[in-house]
Write a protein that binds this DNA or RNA. Sequence first.
DNA 1: GCGACAG
DNA 2: ATCTTGTCGC
Length: 227
Amino acid sequence: MEIAEPPGWPRTPAEAEAVQDALRPRLDLRGPGPRRPATVAGLDVSYAGDGHDTGAPLAAAAVVLATATLEVVASSVATGTAAFPYVPGLFAFRELPALLDALRGLPAAPDVLVCDGYGLAHPRRFGLACHVGVLTGLPAFGVAKTAFVGEWEPPGERRGDSGPLLLDGAEVGRVLRTRDGVKPVFVSVGHRMDLDTACALTLALTPEYRLPETTRRADRLSRDALR
DNA sequence: GCGACAG
DNA sequence: ATCTTGTCGC
C-alpha cells in the first residue's frame, strides 16, 4: 500500500512532542468505526539484544487477516534499527519508521490496523495507534497488555466483561477481559474508530488467546525475521 | 521533589 | 522489548 513519507523524524523528546502536536489536528475521532471490515492488520516489532538501546536491530511486521475466518491473507516484514530512545509516551517514534515500511510492503491497504500499545489512552492523548492511523489514513486502534495511564477497576472475570479506562474523568479506553479469569487487555481508539467497535473487533480477534490473533501473528513474524 | 512509566 | 528454568494445566 502507498504511504506518504512523513516530513522528518524527530531526534529529541522535544522534537517528538512537536511532531505529535503537528499530527494531532489530523486525528479523526468523529463518527462510528468501519461498518464491516473485511480485513484487519496486526502490527508488532521485535528487537535483538537490549530493546532499550538506540540503534538496536529490529524487525517490524504487518499481518493481514480476513476478519471472518482469521486466516492470513497477506503479510510483510521490514528490518531496521531503533532510531529513537525508549521513552514512555514517545515510544511510537522507535517503531514507526519500520512499521510504515512493513505496511508499504503490503499488496493492498487493510480495512483496520491493530497496534500493540495505546491510542488515546496516553499521557498526551496521542499514542502509537494515533500516529499510525493519521499517517496511513486508515482506521486504527490499540490493544495493550499492561496499564499505562488512567484509573480503572478490574472488570468481571468472564470473557467480554469490561470497564472504563478514565483519564481526567473522560473514557479514553476500556479494560477488556478477552479470556475467562485471565488478565484483561487495554483497548483504546487511535483514528477513525469508536471504542465499541474497537472492543467488538478485539473480541472477534481473540477466539482462543488473550491477545488478538493479529498481534500474535505479527509478533511471531517479526521475531522470526530477526534470525 | 519523588516515583511510575505502552514496547 | 529481551534474557531464562522450572512448573502447572488443558
